[in-house]
Design a protein around this nucleic acid. Structure first.
Lengths: 343, 343
DNA sequence: ACCATGCTACCAATCGTTTGCAATCATTCA
DNA sequence: TGAATGATTGCAAACGATTGGTAGCATGGT
């Protein structure tokens, strides 16, 4: 008011300009904005008020370069064996949503990438060495187990969603797929099913384990139950026609289907309905994931539930521990059979 | 081999170290890695080979500070009137997936934030002035129209998903909600429905327009059709019980439901089924969004389809134009009625 | 009157890359 | 032979914030 202060102050470009305006040095402004008590409270508040008035905010790029802390966590979805799979896959998206919530709550930003691995380890190294990230979260191992292992050997703040293998070095959080597969098969066998079809692409580590678990349970049951597997594309476009074809060519004696994901199960449920096959009377169906959506189908889907929210929390907790320098072990979540109406 | 070259070369910290190794100046290395033809091809390739061998990648933070270009686009979901709504809402996630695909394809990274607006404009300014972003994409306007307008007045590279209002300044991409509402109501009325319930929270701009469109169509039809609206929470937990309550308290003569989203429609479909109401024989149902999931219900959902993929493309195109300095107009997408089985 | 003690605030180096300008050298033309 | 041309590379100043070390200045104790 007293001075020739413009009504609409021009935007301040940097800390130095604000310093000149306040009649102090840039260093003082930096400390004042960081609210350090090294600077007198009056001065501090005066500078903060000035900054607010001019809508000034220090350049993050510079700050982060200087401090080496970025406050950003990278989330990448490797699409190795299934390049057509869209990033908007509901399972990924659900997990991503929980991760975002957990990270943002802790003051981190989240940078999203989709990686097309190809042949070399370059895709992961590029992310990890970008110098932009405090840590990296991988959603899924795809078929890149070896690559992940090699990078994890030198880059600590890396946490992966996926399957745990004996003796692996990278920190992983995921459901016990073996146990999940067992649970599904045991339930179906207990219901009297003896000929089970497995729908899923076993090139993915987790899915391969789900089938293995189911096969083990079948063998242990001593009922002579057989499990035939049908690879299923994950891309929405191809999934439908492929499942339709599988439904038509599979052994007519098949009395149950174990779908590797709820999404596959939902599509299967629809196609069975179209063909006039009643579920579960004519054929039983079990899904995998326990997405909120699986509750909304008619009939409601029986499924193996993964604790996605808990998994996200565990991933973030492990990552922050690693960013902080401490080591964190892998977490294996117990799957849970949710019996609803389809089996 | 000839020199004392270690088998596992130690990691290079910066361009200067690589320069010393190559016997050139840092500037030359910088140019070589950027593949500029100012530097001799032999030298260039030699440096690039060296970089590859040592797994060296220039620090992005520094580079971005120097150039002022970040290569990052911010995506933020403002949660104004509905703080409980989770970031993992399927519509947001689907749009986000397409946005991610479009951005990554063009070489941009994507930074995700969830904003809890509160009372001031600060939430958006913090994102916009962070100095980390080349541009910002907003998913939804929530109840923050005024805030968005004021920020858009000075910050150009901002594109918003939502509803277009006459004379607004910010660039928006979205479906014509009015037309969508009309389409739904017209279809229901043509089927003979005269008492329609609308399920959705009209505090959101888009949803409010959907109801308005439906009401307009009802009035124009001259059939005396009434539309009652029932606010519906967007958070998954509360949605179910609320819809159940609405179903029980609404006028028994209601012969159709227009749900403001496919998610609401799916939950409604289930609850109707639980109550033994046949769809569409006893009561018709129309959704909104046209998510891939809406195809998987039994019976399949009749819905108003939004071109989410096209919208994402349009948003990214508009944003890149704005980042490049040119101006880009708003885009209004035409909704499309998809008649399936529920109405 | 003198020194120790706190407070504050300043100075200048630093993070790692990019880039305009100048310097070097070989080559070519008159 | 000398100057002009063109191709490469080096030099050093940015970009903007942070921070350890230090100077200035009261105050208080002796």
């Amino acid at each position: 008011m007293s001075e020739g202060q413009e009504h609409k102050p021009r935007r301040l470009r940097n800390i130095a300009e604000l310093a000149k305006l306040a009649g102090v040095s840039p260093g003082t402004v930096s400390r004042a904005l960081a609210d350090k008590d090294l600077v007198n409270r009056e001065t501090r508040e005066r500078i903060q008020a000035l900054a607010r008035e001019h809508g000034f905010r220090p350049n993050q790029m510079a700050s982060r370069l200087r401090t080496g802390q970025t406050g950003v966590v990278g989330v990448v979805i490797p699409l190795g064996h299934e390049q057509k799979q869209h990033i908007s896959d509901p399972f990924f998206m659900t997990l991503l949503g929980y991760l975002a919530d957990a990270l943002i709550e802790r003051g981190y930003d989240l940078m999203l990438s989709r990686a097309l691995p190809g042949d070399s380890a370059e895709w992961l190294e590029r992310v990890v060495d970008s110098g932009m990230l405090d840590g990296v979260l991988l959603i899924g191992q795809s078929d890149q187990f070896a690559t992940i292992e090699s990078v994890a050997a030198r880059y600590r703040p890396l946490v992966v969603w996926g399957t745990h293998r004996e003796g692996q070095r990278h920190c992983v959080v995921g459901t016990d797929s073996d146990a999940g597969g067992r649970l599904a098969a045991q339930h179906l066998i207990a219901r009297g099913c003896r000929r089970i079809a497995f729908f899923g692409d076993t090139r993915g580590l987790e899915i391969e384990r789900r089938l293995a678990g189911a096969r083990a349970a079948a063998a242990e049951s001593g009922t002579g139950t057989r499990i035939d597997d049908f690879p299923t594309h994950l891309s929405a476009e191809e999934m439908g026609s492929q499942i339709a074809a599988d439904l038509d060519r599979m052994d007519p004696a098949t009395d149950a289907i174990f779908a590797a994901s709820d999404l596959i199960a939902m599509a299967t449920l629809r196609l069975l309905h179209e063909r006039g096959r009643r579920v579960p009377e004519d054929i039983a169906l079990v899904g995998f994931d326990g997405l909120p959506l699986s509750e909304q189908t008619v009939p409601q889907l029986t499924t193996i539930h993964q604790d996605i929210a808990g998994g996200a929390q565990a991933m973030v907790a492990a990552l922050l521990a690693r960013i902080g320098g401490s080591d964190s072990p892998s977490t294996v979540l117990a799957p849970q059979l949710i019996v609803r109406e389809t089996a």
